[in-house]
Amino acid sequence: MDLFAQLFVNGLINGSHYALLGVGFGLIFATTRIVHFAYGPIFTAAAYAAWFAANVLGLPIPVAMVFAAAVAAVLGVITYQYLYLPFERGQSSSHVTLIASLGLFIVLENLIAIIFGTGGRVIDGYQYGIFLVGPIYFSSVQLGQVIAMVVLTALLGVYLARTRHGKAILATTDNPEMARIIGIDTVKVSRLVFAIGSALSAIPATLILLKDGATPSMGFFAVFIAFVAVIVGGVGSLRGAVAGGLALGMVESLGLWKIPTEWQSSIAFIVLFLVVLLRPQGLFGRTVS
């Protein structure tokens, strides 16, 4: 039972990480319909930016995190402005944009490896705290992963529902055509979601840096799991992305309770496969038209 409790908490923690990745990716995807593959290397770049700020500039970690978010936001906006927007203006299909994004993925990942080297990077001398609650262990970074997910998602929810910009984002997500008609500058909205979505990715990126260190190839898994979380939870819904991410984390952790761990990377997909076969309308009851 102790093991189960521990696995449950692990699932919650990793699920929170996936959920936050999904929220950032999902915001961009739902609003712009761009499968932003390069979300992965921007996530990586954010981790390295945080490393640079903390280790080289010697800034405190919260400041490094903000710095990373700023770097990610700038990279995200540049990517939209100079890569996706020209494709959009050229009336390219979404497939073409996807492959262009893949091109950027390859460029950025290798650029990062050249600049920062292929070895891992950690913040020298950083030590996180360990908590023991009953039989369950977790670290302060892991706690941070859960808190970051809850707080940032809640803030984003309020922002989307309450502010003028947030409402413009929601309107564009609902129907870009209609949004343009009622006078919303959808290009501006897209720029905004790329800034917010990318900045959001910097938080889990920094936490992974603190937890495991940064490597140039860490982005692939991040964008992959974010994509899956969004689709599992349902495109266009903040709650869906969170639910999708948590579900993935939980299944991955609890699924291995009795199953050998060599199935770790596929267990969530096995469950997913079965669920979609049995419930083709999606996990959370949305009907597919």
């Binding site: 020209p86 262009a100 091109g103 950027l104 390859i106 460029v107 290798n110 650029l111 050249i114």
Partner: peptide, 18 residues
């Protein structure tokens, strides 16, 4: 670097032939 050039060429080709 070869991969970087490769990625850039992929983007350029798609821009020219969407």
């Amino acid at each position: 670097s070869h991969l970087i050039i490769y990625g850039l060429l992929l983007i350029v080709i798609l821009r020219l032939r969407p």
